[in-house]
Structure formats: C-alpha cells, structure tokens
Design a protein around this nucleic acid. Sequence first.
DNA 1: GGGACGATGTAT
DNA 2: TACATCGTCCCT
Length: 180
Amino acid sequence: MTLTPLPRAFSARDTIDVARALLGQLLVHEAGGVRRAGRIVETEAYLGPHDLACHSSKGRTARTEVMFGPPGHAYVFLVYGMHHCVNVVTGNGAAVLVRALEPVEGLAQARTDGPGRLTRAMGITRAHDGWPLDERPLFLAAGTPVRRIGRSARIGVEYAGAWARRQLRFFDAASRYVSG
DNA sequence: GGGACGATGTAT
DNA sequence: TACATCGTCCCT
C-alpha cells in the first residue's frame, strides 16, 4: 500500500486545530527498507512564546529555532537526558507534541503510548529535528477519522502555573493506546 | 566552568 | 516514590 504524505499546509493553521486534526492521521517512518506507521491518538498543543509551558517561551535559541521556522516541520528534542519527543511545528514558535500512536505497520510488540516510547519505537531522534514532514522518510499521511475527541490538561508541565491547567491535550476517546 | 532543571519511563 | 541521564540555559 502506498502512503502519500499530507501537504505541508495541513500544519499551517491554528495550533489547536492542528492538534485535533492530527488525531487519526498516520506518522510514518521508512528506514532501512522497513516502513513503520502509527495512527496518532494523543496530542498536545503548545501555543507559542506566550504559553509558559512551551519551550519557545524561554526565547528563540538554537534548540527552539525550528519552532520559529515554517509549519509542517518536525521539532525533536531530548528530555530527561534519554527520551526524544516529536512535535509538528505550526509556526510562530508553536507546535503540537505527538504523545501516543496506535500501531499500524512495523510496530509489532513495540509500546507506542507515551512521547518517549513512540519515538523509540519509530526510530525518531534529534537527527530528524527540522525535517519537513511532507517528505520521506519521515512524514505524515492520511489516516482514519476519530469519532470522539477527549480533552484534558497537558501532562508534566505543572511548573507553568495557569498555563498548566489549560485543556490543551487531545486524544481519541476510544483508543486503548492513549498514554497514562 | 558549573549547577539546576526537565513536554519521561521504569523499577521499587 | 526514586531515579536514570544529559542537553540546554543561565550564572539565581
């Protein structure tokens, strides 16, 4: 089956809209002659420099530079010295964190619930930071619709005060692959 | 140069 | 609840 990348314009709109629209779409990585694909079932919106939970609120640095670049690119960072997290940049310092995948292809017996687990399962590292997600080998593709979207506060950002309480986490309410 | 701190995951 | 483990940021 051929998977066609979603156009970059998919990510060039309101960050919350992108966080919701990404649910049900596929994240695909073709590497070493193997295709791995997962259906996105959990996301978080990070709204930009004014959002105190967003990395770009600390300023425009070497690490956060891609968040200020064009939409549709991957922002990949290392957290806690060992786990990679992958985001879809929406522009102006904003991005959507991908927090969980439902295995679709090439992910047998790999855990994909949780941002660190899914990057490990997919083989995504900082080498992909800045990668345009409408190009192989790492890209977004059309998936299947989500019937009901659940919503909650974002995970692990308690330091962000009132911003930590904003309901900016979205998930497929019917999926057993949502983290937590 | 050095210290504090993570958008986590796993073991205890 | 402890802690592994290291890049980033700022010098508190």
